[in-house]
C-alpha cells in the first residue's frame, strides 16, 4: 500500500544447512536493524501492533519450531506503556526436521519475514522480506 522505503532492516543470506533424512537441522537468520529503529517483537503487548513473523514454505523439510530471540521492553516518546521490541542485530533460529522420505539432494527452502518498523516519531509500512535458504538433504 506504500512506497518502499530505504532498507531499515536487512537479512543476511542464510548459510546452507545439511539435513539428514529422519533427523533435525537448524537454520539461523541474521537480522540487522538500522540505528534508531525498532520493530515489534513476535509477541507485541498491544493487539493492534504488527508482530515480527517468519513464515516458511519448508518443503522438502518440515518446520519443528521457529525460535525468536528474547525481546526487550522499551518506552518511547509516543507510547504510554513500554513496547516489546527488537533493536540492533538479532538472530532467528528455525528448527527443521527432514522427513525419512524427503527427496535427497540440493533444494531451496523459502520463507517470508514480515516486520513493521518505527523510530521515535514515525512508523513505516509493514514490509515482507523473502528469504532463500539453501538446503542439502542427505
Amino acid at each position: 500500500m506504500f512506497a518502499q522505503s530505504n532498507a531499515i532492516l536487512t537479512v543476511a543470506p542464510p548459510q546452507k544447512i545439511v539435513a539428514k533424512r529422519g533427523s533435525a537441522a537448524t537454520a539461523k537468520l541474521e537480522v540487522v536493524l538500522g540505528a534508531g529503529y525498532h520493530i515489534n517483537s513476535n509477541a507485541p503487548h498491544e493487539a493492534y501492533l504488527i508482530p515480527l513473523r517468519l513464515t516458511w514454505t519448508p518443503a522438502p523439510l518440515e518446520v519443528a519450531e521457529v525460535v525468536y530471540p528474547k525481546p526487550h521492553d522499551e518506552k518511547y516518546q509516543f507510547s504510554e506503556q513500554p513496547l516489546s521490541v527488537y533493536t540492533g542485530n538479532f538472530e532467528i533460529a528455525t528448527k527443521f526436521k527432514a522427513p525419512a522420505d524427503a527427496v535427497m539432494g540440493p533444494a531451496i527452502v523459502l520463507a517470508k519475514l514480515r516486520y513493521q518498523a518505527c523510530n521515535s516519531t514515525m512508523c513505516f509500512p509493514p514490509k515482507t522480506v523473502e528469504v532463500r535458504l539453501p538446503v542439502d538433504v542427505q
Binding site: 518511547y76 516518546q77 509516543f78 518505527c118 516519531t121 514515525m122 512508523c123
Partner: peptide, 8 residues
C-alpha cells in the same frame, strides 16, 4: 494506521 504508535 492502527499499527502506528505516533499516530495514536
Amino acid at each position: 494506521a492502527t499499527w502506528c504508535g505516533p499516530c495514536k
